[in-house]
Every structure is written in C-alpha cells, then in structure tokens.
Amino acid sequence: MNAATGTARLMRPAVVYGWLAVLTAFELAVVRVPLGRGATASLLVGSALAKAALVVLHFMHLRIEGRILRAIALLPLLLVVAFVVALIPDIGARR
C-alpha cells in the first residue's frame, strides 16, 4: 500500500484539524461582519474550497495517490462546475 510509504508527504492530522477549525471559525466570523454580499460570498466559498481540499488531499490521501484516482476525483468536479455555469443564463438570471 502506497499510503504507508507516502504518508510522510501528508500533513499531520492534528495540523489539518487545526486549519479546519480556524477556517470554520473564520467563516462564522465573516458572516457577522458587514462586508457586502459579493465579498462575503467569495470569502465563504474560498474558505469552503480550502477546507474541502484539506480533507480530500490529506485525510483522503489524494495528495499521494496516482493519476487514476486523481482523474476520477477531478472529472466530476469539472463537469459539475461547467453544468452549473451553463444553467446560470437560463435559470439563475431569470427573475
């Protein structure tokens, strides 16, 4: 199993946990400060992506996995983003 040899390249779980906690606290703080919709949304989405990446790369070991698993993880993400963007002119911009 490559997890045993590659775990050195992963962040220690406690460190990941610390970052996840800090980012969650950051999110809870952001919504309590009046920044405007755009800024709040960007910060929240950015923070959520960072947290998701931490879990996927370090807890799910994607950082040390081979190309096949990376491709399997990446493909649906790209499709979902493309799909939602394609829906914006039709559904999102309809009021």
Binding site: L69, A73, P76, I88, G92
Partner: peptide, 25 residues
C-alpha cells in the same frame, strides 16, 4: 472512488439546482 465520483454528480446536481434557483429567485 468511482462511487464517490457519482456522489459528486448527485450532490452537484442538488447544490447546483439550489444555487441557480436562488440566483433566479
């Protein structure tokens, strides 16, 4: 992992629907 790819599409469809419905509401 293949199963999780399908789960990404499932939640992607639900979350995407929520996002565009909210934008259009």
């Amino acid at each position: 992992w293949i199963f999780l790819a399908s789960e990404v599409m499932f939640f992607g469809a639900l979350v995407g629907s929520y996002l565009v419905l909210r934008m259009g509401s």
